[in-house]
């Protein structure tokens, strides 16, 4: 496979993994546009082993999609020799550099903030009812932070592909 074909493959992978990942955030906003605190009754119905396995699978898919999307994006920049310039927000690489920093922050949010709390909310890790309800507020804020960050993320991905049109 030549370099151009591999770059195309990476870009395609980046889009698909990104849609799986951020699509989950958008789906959550559409299902629950406004915050309504959970109650014990809300959490009581999802304890069957089958439902737990479904939740685990779904969460795993989008969590690992974040790693695939981030890795494909970083590898694309590295292969082009653009990674140092993007990291330094240098000239025409500044827009995609901003996108990369936002994407990195979002992946860290998924793994370090959302996941540890979501495990308790979903019942994948043992926790008291009070603790699960407390964690559901944190997962809401964490998920919405990524939804909010996806707006500039997609803008800077698009801007970066158009030759850094923001830069004079």
């Amino acid at each position: 496979m030549d370099g151009f074909a591999f770059d195309l493959l990476l870009r395609w992978t980046h889009f698909i993994a990104g849609i799986i990942w951020v699509g989950h955030n958008y789906s959550s906003v559409i299902q629950r546009p406004s915050w309504r605190p959970l109650t014990g009754a809300d959490l009581g119905n999802d304890q069957s082993a089958r439902f737990q396995a479904l939740l685990n699978r779904e969460h795993g898919f989008f969590r690992w999609a974040s790693v695939v999307a981030w890795s494909a994006g970083t590898l694309m920049l590295w292969r082009r020799g653009s990674l140092p310039g993007a990291l330094a927000l240098d000239g025409a690489l500044a827009p995609i550099g901003v996108g990369m920093y936002i994407g990195t922050l979002m992946m860290a949010n998924v793994w370090l903030v959302l996941w540890p709390h979501q495990q308790k909310v979903l019942g994948l890790k043992p926790a008291t009812l009070e603790e699960r309800l407390r964690c559901s507020r944190i997962t809401h804020l964490s998920s919405r932070t990524n939804t909010m960050l996806s707006v500039p993320l997609l803008f800077f991905m698009a801007a970066g592909a158009h030759g850094g049109m923001l830069v004079r």
Binding site: W35, L89, M148, L149
Partner: peptide
């Protein structure tokens, strides 16, 4: 008053504001 993230509109509005602020910064500094 609740958190801006507590509504879909608040979340999107914050995203748009951040996009504008970052785009202006890139235009000024990069």
């Amino acid at each position: 008053m609740g958190h801006p993230y507590d509504t879909a509109a608040g979340t999107v509005l914050l995203g748009l504001l951040l996009t504008g602020a970052l785009a202006a910064l890139v235009r000024l500094l990069a």
